[in-house]
């Protein structure tokens, strides 16, 4: 018995320049905001960009984007709608406002299905918003997407960085490309995360201070891109 879907994924992703998974071993560090703002920043710079929300059980990029009244088109596969210049895909198009309690095998199956049927156009970048942790979604991406690159987000908290460290070491062990570590919601300037990132042999991408104006900007692209948070994302990740 053979699952045919995996055999078509390389072809589906064949026209994409770089595929970057914004991830973290820990939840609540701002992955979705970083991923969405990163993707919008790249659009502003003139790149062709896709954003793929793989956080199936807690999707939020559609809320950040204010993506309402859009739906993929069915045509020899699923064509993602364009939202603020981004080709955008999320399971939320099919789950709507319902809770989506999925176990690991279901997460894998849904992920494989979406990679197999989504028809992206010629993209310079596909940015993936990952679920937290080092579970099924991360392992599936490593297994299925040959040229995947990880961008790791942490906060200044030891609680976050301890799990991020494990994730970073695991990715190194598996010889998976890691762009570097981004410190979000930075609390001070003691350089602790930067120093520890260096000890891991990874690039410290930069730190972004907590910006209380971001919450008000959720759902409004222009307002979001005007925040200090977004300007810092553009400064750090504008030319990945």
């Amino acid at each position: 018995m053979v699952d045919p879907r995996k055999s078509i994924i390389d072809q589906r992703l064949g026209k994409i320049g770089r595929i970057i998974a914004v991830s973290s071993g820990k939840g609540g560090v701002g992955k979705s905001l970083v991923a969405t703002t990163f993707a919008l920043t790249l659009v502003q710079k003139g790149y062709n960009v896709g954003l793929f929300d793989l956080d199936f059980t807690s999707p939020s990029t559609h809320i950040i984007l204010g993506a309402e009244d859009v739906q993929p088109i069915e045509e020899k596969g699923i064509i993602p709608p364009v939202v603020h210049g981004l080709e955008y895909m999320s399971l939320v198009f099919y789950t709507k406002d319902h809770a989506t309690p999925l176990r690991g095998a279901d997460v894998s199956n849904a992920l494989i299905e979406l990679f197999a049927i989504t028809i992206w156009s010629n993209l310079d970048f596909l940015i993936i918003d990952m679920p937290p942790g080092i579970g099924d979604a991360m392992l599936d991406l490593i297994r299925l997407v040959a040229n995947i690159e990880f961008l790791i987000v942490t906060t200044s908290s030891r609680l976050a960085f301890e799990t991020v460290k494990k994730q970073a070491v695991l990715l190194q062990d598996l010889k998976v490309s890691t762009i570097g570590i981004l410190e979000n919601m930075k609390m001070d300037n003691n350089g602790c995360i930067q120093a520890q990132t260096g000890e891991l042999g990874l690039r410290f991408l930069g730190g972004i201070s907590f910006d209380p104006t971001v919450e008000e900007a959720i759902g409004d692209k222009s307002q979001l891109l005007g925040t200090a948070f977004a300007r810092k994302v553009a400064e750090i990740l504008g030319e990945p």
Binding site: Y94, K96, T100, D106, E113, L114
Partner: peptide
């Protein structure tokens, strides 16, 4: 039909 796993939502 598009993603069978969403059966868990419904």
């Amino acid at each position: 039909h598009f993603v069978p796993e969403v059966i868990h939502s419904y």
